[in-house]
């Protein structure tokens, strides 16, 4: 049984369908990267999985099975027990997710006391342990968030998410607001932590480069739908969906001789209107007539899949040719 099994999830904000019939599974210990641009629905997906959507955001249909239990129908009081102990979240800007009027120690203690109370001395040890784990000197435990740099605060929010050793962590753009050197540092840190703690994660980001480095598999999202899922290495070497191909070209190899950021002309579609055909068709360089009328359901087979008429064709050509 997969740790997380999202089935036909649709999330709406009023008449805007932000997540459209998304299905994906996450195995124990796996990091699934979710990549998309603003408005693609990637953050909404993360919030829906944890049921932290703010009104008017609402799950319209679908199931989110966590160890076989459907979180969508789970009572809020039962969900509260699972949050932090079994599922935790790291928000985009750690600076805003931390309580500004509580010391770092207090924030760790609050979480521990609320979910897994232990003695004072054990708690003190635990805080020191967690801070060391993210390479922060434990003497900072008695500082307030504003006394620390953005990178330190983000590392602290990662440590906070890990303190109760959850099985699943949702990372929502954990490195976006940070400088590139600090970003690199946090990504390296996360890789080490994962080998120690064996957590599973949904790693949501717009930065395909970072996601490809950290995730085992990558799901590319466009206009509320997954357009492609592949193991990271394969996605990098042989992207099937034209959107993935175009997105990859926006992240050139910094060491290559020629650097040319191509970009993708056009803008993402208006999600309040449901249009027939493929949502990417108006921006697609390989568009065909049927792309404008026939939509394609995304099917995940053995952890991979693509929703593109063109991809199906090239497969056929390969088989016959």
């Amino acid at each position: 049984m997969p740790l997380l099994d999202i089935q036909h999830l649709t999330v709406t904000y009023g008449n805007v369908q932000a997540v459209r019939d998304v299905s994906v599974t996450l195995e124990t210990g796996e990091i699934l990267g979710v990549v998309g641009e603003s408005g693609s629905g990637k953050s909404t997906l993360g919030y829906a999985v944890t049921k932290l959507l703010r009104p008017p955001g609402a799950i319209q249909s679908g199931r989110v099975l966590f160890e076989g239990t459907d979180l969508v129908s789970t009572l809020e009081s039962d969900l509260r027990k699972k949050r932090w102990t079994e599922i935790s979240v790291v928000m985009q800007s750690g600076m805003n997710a931390l309580n500004p009027v509580a010391t770092i120690r207090r924030q760790f203690e609050d979480a521990i006391i609320a979910h897994q109370p232990t003695g004072q001395s054990r708690m003190k040890e635990r805080v020191a342990e967690m801070l060391k784990m993210v390479n922060i000197d434990p003497r900072y435990a008695d500082n307030y968030p504003h006394e620390l740099s953005g990178g330190m605060k983000q590392r602290i929010s990662i440590a906070l998410a890990l303190v109760l050793e959850p099985k699943l962590i949702i990372f929502d753009e954990p490195t976006t607001a940070l400088d590139v050197v600090v970003q690199r540092f946090i990504v390296q840190n996360l890789k080490t932590l994962r080998s120690q703690y064996h957590f599973s994660a949904l790693f949501i980001s717009h930065d395909l480069g970072t996601v490809l480095e950290i995730a085992d598999r990558v799901a590319v999202m466009y206009a509320g739908k997954f357009v492609e899922i592949q193991p990271s290495g394969q996605l990098l070497r042989a992207p099937k969906h034209p959107y993935t191909q175009a997105l990859l070209q926006c992240f050139p190899d910094p060491r290559s001789d020629q650097i040319n950021i191509v970009g993708i002309p056009g803008t993402p579609p208006d999600l309040s209107v449901v249009q027939p055909g493929c949502a990417f068709a108006p921006r697609c360089s390989q568009v065909m007539t049927r792309c404008l009328t026939e939509s394609l359901a995304f099917v995940e087979v053995a952890g991979a899949g693509v929703a593109c008429h063109r991809a199906g064709l090239t497969e056929e050509v390969k088989q016959h040719g």
Binding site: Q183, R184, D207
Partner: peptide, 19 residues
């Protein structure tokens, strides 16, 4: 070196020093 580079064939060890 800090720019994410999935094309890099092997992990480049980085000396980060104090941040």
């Amino acid at each position: 070196q800090s720019i994410p580079n999935p094309w890099a064939t092997e992990e480049q060890p980085m000396a980060l020093g104090i941040l």
